[in-house]
């Protein structure tokens, strides 16, 4: 008798699960096969990105020349209003350097560790509760961070380094983007973040002509990045749409003027002695093109124009307020 009850119960349960309409509780019914497909959650960055309110009181482009990287980072940020304009006490700040390759800092393929270290210290001075440093390099992440000196600089300055691991990527939705409307994004370091700062070196790049602060966001994406080159300018425009940073820092302490973006020889690098800070990454890149890559006489990379047309900023820094400081 007991067994008959068990059999009946199991049969009723199985029947319910298999036959009840799919919107009923505990139903497993899936007549079209759609319900059984995996669902990836889609995330979005906050509305308006991580930008702070625009201000007429300060320069749009803060440009510091000199040799002391610490002073240049401070000088450039002070010129656009000082770090307290951007970071409030208690906030979590993510800094995105370019650590794409495992090259020594002097070779110019990566953000200079000293510039990064100075930036982290400045951010902490504004009272940030946590500073994170994250990048998804082309080459193996540990080697890239260690050999570029970025790991050490970040840890010594008190930041937490996030290296990508397989579970760290989520689909990010960027409405309006041409190619990367939904694309895997290095999400883990972004959990709970209030402000995002990019800090990128000045590099030659065969296809997109120059890799600076806008192209830097490439390192936040995962997935099949090697397809991007089929429309690199469109992709960089999408990157400008995807990430609205708090501000960016252009690390022009060294300029990789050829053989970019990998470099590998000191013959490809010259000293730039400049750090630029701006809330407008397109203008910062345009300035770097003219003044650091020394390509004023050549056409600007197409992505600057495309992004400007899409209303994502304006590269033409001649219309903007520049504050230039010479330090030491």
């Amino acid at each position: 008798m007991k067994q008959a009850g068990l059999v009946g119960g199991l049969a009723a349960g199985a029947g319910w699960a298999a036959l009840a309409p799919s919107d009923w509780p505990l139903s497993l019914k899936d007549p079209t096969g759609e319900l059984g497909k995996p669902k990836r959650r889609q995330l979005a960055l906050p509305e308006g990105g991580y930008a702070v309110a625009p201000s007429k009181l300060h320069a749009d482009l803060g440009i510091a020349h000199g040799v002391d990287m610490n002073a240049m980072v401070r000088g450039a940020i002070d010129a656009i209003g000082g770090i307290r304009r951007f970071v409030n006490p208690g906030e979590i700040v993510l800094i995105k350097p370019n650590v794409a390759f495992e090259r020594a800092a002097a070779l110019g393929a990566t953000t200079h560790p000293e510039v990064l270290g100075a930036l982290i210290r400045v951010v902490f001075e504004a009272g940030a509760s946590e500073v994170r440093v994250a990048d998804n390099p082309i080459e193996s992440p540990e080697s890239c961070f260690a050999k570029s000196g970025v790991q050490r600089a970040a840890v010594e300055a008190g930041a937490r380094v996030y290296l990508p691991s397989p579970g760290d990527f989520e689909l990010l939705s960027t409405p309006g983007a041409k190619w990367i409307e939904r694309w895997p994004f290095f999400w883990r370091p972004f959990v709970g973040v209030h402000k995002v700062i990019g800090v990128a070196p000045v590099k030659d790049h065969n296809l997109c002509h120059a890799s600076m602060t806008t192209k830097n966001w490439y390192g936040l994406l995962g997935g099949r990045r090697n397809q991007f080159h089929q429309d690199i300018h469109g992709i960089i425009t999408d990157l400008a749409r995807m990430m609205r940073p708090t501000f960016v820092l252009l690390d022009g302490t060294r300029v990789l003027f050829r053989s970019g973006p990998t470099g590998g020889s000191l013959d490809d690098v010259r000293s730039g002695q400049t750090v630029v800070a701006s809330t407008n990454s397109l203008a910062a890149d345009a300035y770097g093109w003219d003044a650091l890559l020394l390509r004023k006489d050549k056409d600007k990379p197409a992505y600057l124009g495309m992004a400007t047309e899409s209303g994502l900023g304006d590269w033409d820094y001649s219309k903007l307020v520049l504050e230039e400081v010479q330090l030491g």
């Binding site: 193996s140 540990e142 290296l163 691991s165």
Partner: peptide, 8 residues
């Protein structure tokens, strides 16, 4: 993790 810091 046996091989930390590897994206894949």
């Amino acid at each position: 993790a046996m091989k930390p810091g590897a994206p894949e």
